[in-house]
């Protein structure tokens, strides 16, 4: 039988206490590293871009490649003399005031009648426990008023979001993540999507829009991830048409040779939630144009 002398027992107890004291903070920091901290993420995310582009004003980041490359900025200024999204904007304004069959309007579905609220989307909806995009909110409005949902990537949907964006120009992104584990989880899943390498090319959103932002990929200048959604919806010359945020994200998926997800897939909505939260403080500049 092993016996321990009292002097040895005290020494063992002291050593054990020291080990516990040293290990406790390490465990605490591991736990805090695992727990999502959106605000800490946002500060680090924005600090990265402010350091990378010290001469670009914070309010300019919504203009994407035109904020970080003087050559394409000059071309953009000329394009904006006759913005290619004007026709879509007119269609959207006509649709916005047209009553549904039940006599109600889109404005009846939104805070402040839909004026100047685009910067608060996407939102976390407590009732569903999911993230709702602006396009999702417009389609919910239609369905609740007895209308068919619109195709979420282009056409009339892009025109309607253009109207809502225009009325929100200059208002900084103000995405909220409520104190709800489901909202934090949605944010974290969006963050995971942003940093996860996908497709046969094995690239993530971050692979193109973080460190290489401002550089050329073939003929294009890569837009910084900061403020990347502030110009949505966009008229994209490559499409020859307008497109919503989800159309752009879906195109990105194809460009990495990944099979795009459904337009209203939860992963895409969560990605938009994460990206928009990262841009909190960056003003809305949409509708926009891109090459």
């Amino acid at each position: 039988m092993i016996t321990t002398k009292p002097r040895h027992a005290r020494a063992i107890l002291r050593i054990a206490a020291c080990v516990l004291l040293l290990a406790a903070p390490a465990r605490a920091s591991e736990a805090s590293a695992d727990k999502p901290n959106p605000e800490m993420d946002r500060k680090a995310f924005q600090a990265f871009f402010f350091a990378k582009f010290p001469r670009v004003a914070k309010d300019e980041f919504g203009n994407g490649p035109y904020a970080v490359n003087e050559g394409v900025r000059k071309q953009w200024k000329e394009i904006m003399e006759f913005p290619p999204y004007e026709f879509a904007l007119d269609d959207g304004k006509a649709e916005w005031v047209k009553p549904f069959a039940n006599g109600k309007h889109y404005a009846d579905c939104f805070d402040n009648k839909g004026e100047g609220v685009r910067q608060t989307y996407p939102r976390f909806i407590r009732e569903t426990g999911q993230v709702e995009t602006l396009e999702g909110a417009i389609n919910r409005c239609r369905v609740e008023n007895g209308e068919k949902p619109l195709e979420p990537m282009t056409g009339l949907m892009a025109s309607l979001t253009a109207v809502m964006a225009e009325s929100s120009q200059g208002k900084p992104f103000a995405i909220t993540i409520p104190d709800d584990p489901r909202a934090l989880n949605a944010y974290e899943r969006g963050k995971e999507f942003f940093y996860t390498r996908k497709g046969q090319l094995g690239v993530s959103c971050a692979s193109c829009h973080m460190s290489p932002a401002g550089e050329r990929m073939r003929g294009d200048i890569l837009a910084p991830a900061l403020g990347i959604l502030a110009a949505m919806p966009i008229y994209r010359s490559d499409w020859g048409a307008m497109g919503t945020t989800i159309r752009r994200i879906s195109t990105c998926s194809s460009q990495t040779r990944a099979v795009p997800l459904a337009a209203d897939d939860e992963d895409y909505r969560n990605l938009e939630y994460f990206l928009s939260y990262m841009s909190n403080g960056i003003p809305i500049v949409g509708p926009g144009t891109r090459p």
Partner: peptide, 18 residues
């Protein structure tokens, strides 16, 4: 290969976070 990529990225994505 695509399944292998997805499986690896379940943990690797964290290394890329700024």
């Amino acid at each position: 290969l695509s399944l292998e990529q997805a499986s690896e990225q379940k943990t690797l994505w964290r290394n890329a976070v700024f």
